[in-house]
């Protein structure tokens, strides 16, 4: 018998030509960035589908606030609970999407922490692609959490007089605001790194922003200094515009201000976030 099963030492001769070139194109600019961004956004969506808990998380808190406020304070604030629900739900919609937007920061911090970004960075894809992917997937998350909140509100008894177009417009408006804020949370994630601290600090931003507004209580009962803040708070403006869209009332004024705020926040924080991101990755 001459059969040998030699697996131990491998002294294969060094090939004189490199094994077939890999089928990689190496395109690094323009459309490939978008394509890779879309692929990574797909990753984000699959993650959400696999663990819808994350989505429930961002919706659950506002739901609890909504229930508390409607049934504990609603009668006192608005005379009866269903009138209060009509008043509060549009604002809680804004709050929900802001919480989802804080999740953008946590998700990015997580990716940096677990080393998956190292894998991406060792691949021939543009540096912007992972960030684009994260934000792309998150826009879809904002929309989903907004829809969940609308459905939940409807179950509780919220009734809108608006047509589908106005509802979509309201969702787009809150998404625009969440998009603007996600740059703040991204910048935070790049600065703080540890996912848990990012979550904690994110709450420090999102809670005063949403409670220091007219989301739950009309500003008229607040002390003057607070009214001053509540009046300029972009969350109030966005909530006003959403109320206008869903319940009737002025839309153009508050929506215009809300969009200006969103543009302003994006203009300031997107460059900061991108600079920090480039330094980090």
């Amino acid at each position: 018998m001459t059969t040998t099963t030699n697996t131990a030492t491998n002294t294969a001769p060094v090939p004189t030509t490199v094994a077939q070139p890999p089928p990689r194109t190496g395109a690094r600019h323009g459309p490939s960035t978008l394509r890779h961004g879309a692929t990574l956004a797909w990753r984000g969506l699959v993650k959400t589908v696999h663990s819808p808990e994350a989505l429930i998380d961002v919706t659950l808190q506002p739901v609890i606030f909504l229930l508390l406020f409607v049934y504990v304070f609603g009668g006192a604030i608005a005379g009866d609970t269903s009138a209060y629900l009509q008043f509060a739900l549009p604002g809680v919609l804004v709050q929900t999407v802001i919480f989802a937007s804080a999740g953008t920061g946590t998700g990015l911090a997580d990716d940096l922490h677990t080393g998956i970004f190292d894998r991406f960075r060792s691949l021939p894809i543009s540096r912007a692609a992972p960030l684009l992917g994260a934000i792309g997937a998150d826009l879809a998350r904002y929309a989903t959490s907004g829809v969940i909140m609308l459905v939940f509100g409807t179950i509780l008894g919220f009734r809108t007089s608006a047509g589908p177009l106005a509802i979509v417009a309201a969702l787009l408006l809150v998404m625009a605001f969440a998009f603007a804020l996600c740059w703040v949370f991204t910048a935070l994630a790049m600065l703080v790194k540890d996912p848990r601290s990012v979550q904690g600090l994110g709450a420090l931003i999102s809670l005063p922003l949403t409670f220091g507004s007219n989301v739950f209580v009309p500003a008229s009962t607040m002390p003057g200094w607070l009214q001053g803040w509540v009046d300029v708070n972009p969350v109030s403006k966005t909530a006003d515009a959403v109320r206008g869209l869903l319940l009737g009332g002025p839309v153009a004024g508050p929506a215009g201000t809300a969009l200006l705020w969103a543009a302003g926040i994006t203009l300031v924080f997107a460059p900061i976030a991108v600079t920090l991101y480039r330094r980090r990755t």
Binding site: T114, L123, I125
Partner: peptide
Amino acid sequence: LTGQYAAVDDALSGVENLRLIGRLLD
């Protein structure tokens, strides 16, 4: 590159992880 600490996505399945890399490699 296989780093010292596994750099795979916990929330995805094994198949999804590998396909993701494949798609990113065009």
